[in-house]
Structures are given as structure tokens and as C-alpha cells.
Amino acid sequence: MKIGVMSFAHTHAVGYTTLLKGMGVEVLTCDPDRDSSVEGEVRGAEMAAQLGVDHVDTYEELFAWGPDAVVICSENTRHRRDTELAASHGVHVLCEKPLATTVADAEAMIEACEQAGVLLMTAFPVHFSPQAAQAKAAVESGQVGELMAALGTNNGYCPVGVRAWFLDPQWSGGGCLVDHTVHVAELLHHITGARPVVVNAVKNQIMHAELPGVMAETGGLVTITYDNGFKASIDCSWSVPQHAPTWGGLTLELVGRTGVVEVDAFATRVGGWDSRHNGRDFWLPFGTDMDAELLRTFVGAVEGRLAGGNDPAPAPDGNVGLLTTAIVQAARESAETGQPVEVSLPG
């Protein structure tokens, strides 16, 4: 199997490339657009050399190589362009989250992949969290009764110093509302299947505001009302201090009539104190490699298509990418207007 990695803009490209190689996939990378990067960001052929993979300078060359699929790791606002390009070459797509920054873009991407008959998946690794699977099973077996509400958190470091574009809405579509709301929203969809109806959001730009290049919100709280009356709040803030022992994490508390189930998707770790860093915690994570599960699922689906099958894209697919994009679009509007916003979703 041949998979192209489109862009090193999103740092997940590094992990995906390494994992794909480890799975025996032929990988070709291509990082032609550097206009979103600032000095000091390792990109292009230099990054490819560090990863020990081949690199070409243009997408023409990438598609001339004849990939079966691509993993798109470009800036959020380029996802549509790159997905449409891949679809036009009849190439299956795994697109980094958020699928798009507008509902219109997400719909166009789904349409393009449908027309081309190619798979479209959205890269939501936490979908593969074994703790999330336990929570889904607990809910489905009635252990907490009918679901009433949820509180999810996806707090993390401010991505400053990693890739400047995360903090520039021109490329990212927004700050933490865009970056961190979607993971929890995807899990909620995975577990409940409910459709979002109304979204309210508040935001601020207090944390990390002193850092250079911060042009978007760093704090955000989103509340979603679903069609079945279920409610969920998501803290999507980049509130983990820069010197914390780990990047952040994701939690989800599901409140049912008879009980509460809680997921901490990054809880499995060995802890302790590290005297080299003023006694801060050791944080040695272990457990399921969710990125690897995501890629195995995508590669498996592509293999199925190459073998002549016609199964639809497995979850997390383009539709949940659209649904979570719609939540974020409403959240951004609500945070601007100060009032709840109806979710714009087709059908």
C-alpha cells in the first residue's frame, strides 16, 4: 500500500508518518506550502529527512507517484482544497481534525469524496480509546440509566512554539474552540448518536495572551443541547500550564439517571517526582496507541476498497467530521454574539 502524507503543517504528521512506516506502508511525504510557518519550524525535506522518509516538493509529484490514499495534515483552512485534490485523483482520504472550519467546506469535502467513490475519514484518535469503549458499553448496557447530560474536557498546552498557524485564525479558523471542542463532540456522537440542535459558547484570551503570535481564544466553554434533550458542556481551553508534566488530556463525564460514568482517556501512566524539574510529576504514559488504532482502521478500510469491496468509511468518518464542524461553527458564532446559536446541519 502507498500512502501520501500531505503537508507537515499539523505536527501529527510526524507521528502518523512514523506509524505508517512501522505498519509496512510505503510513505511519500509532500510539504509544499510553508506560508503559514514562522522561522524555526522544521518543515519540508528537512522534516522528511529527520523522519527518514522520501519527500517531493509538489502535490503533482505526490499524485504522479500513484498513492492509494493520503493523510492530510495541512492547516485547517486548507483541508477542503487538499481533500478535493485527493478525491479528484481517486485517492482515499484520512483528514486531520477538525474536518473543516465551515459547514460549507465540510459538506463540499463529503460530496467530493462521494462523487469520486473514495473513503473519507476524520482523524479522531480518541474514538479508539479503550476507556471510551468501556463507557459506551456501560451506557448501552444501562449501567447508568438513561443519559441526561455530559461534561467533557479537552484541556491542553497552548500550541505556541509548535506551529504558529494554530494561533492564527486565517489558517486555523480559530483558537481552542476550533482545536479542542471536536474530540469530545465526536465521542459524544459515538456514544449517544444524538444530533446537536443549539450551541452556546463563551471564550476569552487571557491565558498565554503574552506569548507572541496568539491571535485567537485560549479559553472556551461550549454547551450543546441535542435533539433528544441531552445536554453537554465542553471545556476546550488551552489551560494546561506550559511547564505541566504532560500536554493535557481528555475527560468525559456522562451523567445518567442512575449513575455517572467517567472517562479519562490519558489517565494510564506511571507517576512520581522528577527532581530535575523542581519536583514536578513524572508522567510516563502507557496504554493503547490511539493514533495507531486510527491508522490501522483507515488502512484496513483502504485495503477493503483495493480488494474490490465497497464498504462505507468506518467511524470516525466524514459525517462526524461535518457534525463536529457544525458544532464549532455555531460555537464560534455564539462566542461572538453572546447568545445561543442553532446548529446548521443538512438533513
Partner: peptide, 17 residues
């Protein structure tokens, strides 16, 4: 059984849930 979710903005710019 009841679950309440309240979001607030504070005059100093902080937000709370």
C-alpha cells in the same frame, strides 16, 4: 433526577462553568 449546566462570563474576562 436533574443535571444543571451554567456558563458564566465574569467582569474581569474570566469564564466559568
Amino acid at each position: 433526577t436533574r443535571v444543571g449546566l451554567v456558563t458564566m462570563t465574569h467582569r474581569n474576562g474570566a469564564i466559568s462553568l
